[in-house]
Design a protein around this nucleic acid. Structure first.
Lengths: 210, 210
DNA sequence: CAAAAATAATGAACAGTGTTTAGTAAATCA
DNA sequence: TGATTTACTAAACACTGTTCATTATTTTTG
């Protein structure tokens, strides 16, 4: 019978509608303005209804984190083709920085907030997309270290060092802390200081000049 | 007349009492549990009274940020004596990491939250302690670069790169993101992964082996 | 000393937040 | 049609930051 299926479909549709509206609110008003009640009002349901589709706000934030990874993946696909691993690392870094500073709300959800992580821990789920990206970074590092002849460095540690540096840069930039280094490094227009630092990373770690 | 002075002193005392209680709550319950109403209840005043001494919560958080810098300064003083600039950089980094992971609430206030920064912007004040620490890092970098013969690297960019890396490490560790690299890297007991990465930073940037 | 002015503190409200529960309306099943 | 399941919601709970009219206290002045 197709009835149960239709019911199932309708249930999924409302679930999707909630997530879609959540995404819209984040993009329009920012992550901190996202509230259960706001979603409810805008989709013209009561706040309590949302709790029939999600166990709490953390679960919605977790789903939003996933949407963020989708957005990032779409923006980063173009850099994977570069044949040189060192150049590829540079392009990945630059692309990551661009995404992180231009999509602060999504970046926060993906790499700073604890709320979505609460849901992961509660459901014994994994941080799937995050793990995949890191493992990709590790294998690119292995290649890049081979390219530059640095065989004594652990690629996992190297990958973490690189990740930390670009993540740290994004974090400091997004929280206005870079203003003390360079007062021109505000939001909006891209910051020369960040580009310079990215170049310096590649030079100090792989002797690679842009 | 000593009367106005006594009044002034009493006013400062209540102001200090509020800040002291705020500090106590952060240390006891964490930064996110700090609320105006909680402070008010615990010092046995009404919430409205607090607004006679601070314009809003952001100002209190700004003052708490300052307390955090005091705590950090006390913990870091011992490393300044090291004669070798490169070793000093290593000790600073390790000490910074230790403070950041062991005092997550204070670290968040100092280097992650935007709320205290709102107060700075509103009052056209400066992020005094932060600037001082960064400038100290810059001059130590200048020395360290001279020590290792790397004259072609800009010390300000180098300082920012170092800061970003350790800040990024702390940030990723404190938000559970390091668990994907090493599942043993939870809170509490210190994490070998972080130590290894700190060693790798010193090796890749200054050829310094611990 | 008593009245007036200044200071200090507050109760109550406003506008929000996440979340739970008891109860209602509608759709499906027997 | 009546019973049962499903879908939904109103209202409440316990919070949050913040404002403002009002009260109580203290100080100054006539």
């Amino acid at each position: 019978m197709g009835l149960a299926e239709r019911k199932e479909r309708e249930k999924n549709e409302l679930r999707e509608l909630i997530l879609l509206k959540a995404k819209e609110i984040i993009q329009r008003d920012g992550q901190d303005k996202l509230s259960i009640r706001k979603i409810a009002t805008e989709i013209e349901y009561s706040p309590a209804t949302i709790y029939l589709y999600f166990q709490d706000k953390d679960e919605i934030l977790y789903q939003m984190m996933d949407k963020g990874f989708e957005l990032m993946a779409a923006q980063m696909q173009q850099v994977y083709h570069e044949p040189s691993a060192i150049k590829r690392l540079f392009l990945i870094g630059r692309s990551y920085l661009k995404f992180g500073t231009e999509n602060q709300d999504w970046y926060d959800l993906m790499f700073n907030s604890i709320s979505p992580m609460n849901h992961i821990e509660r459901c014994k789920a994994e941080w799937g997309h995050g793990i995949a990206i890191f493992e990709f970074l590790v294998s690119t590092c292995r290649e890049a270290l081979a390219e530059s002849g640095k065989t004594e460095v652990d690629e996992r540690i190297m990958a973490l060092q690189l990740w930390s540096t670009v993540h740290g840069l994004i974090s400091l930039a997004n929280t206005q802390r870079l203003l003390i280094v360079d007062s021109n490094c505000g939001q909006g227009h891209d910051c020369a200081l960040i580009d310079k630092t990215m170049e310096n990373i590649m030079y100090t770690l792989f002797n690679y000049k842009i």
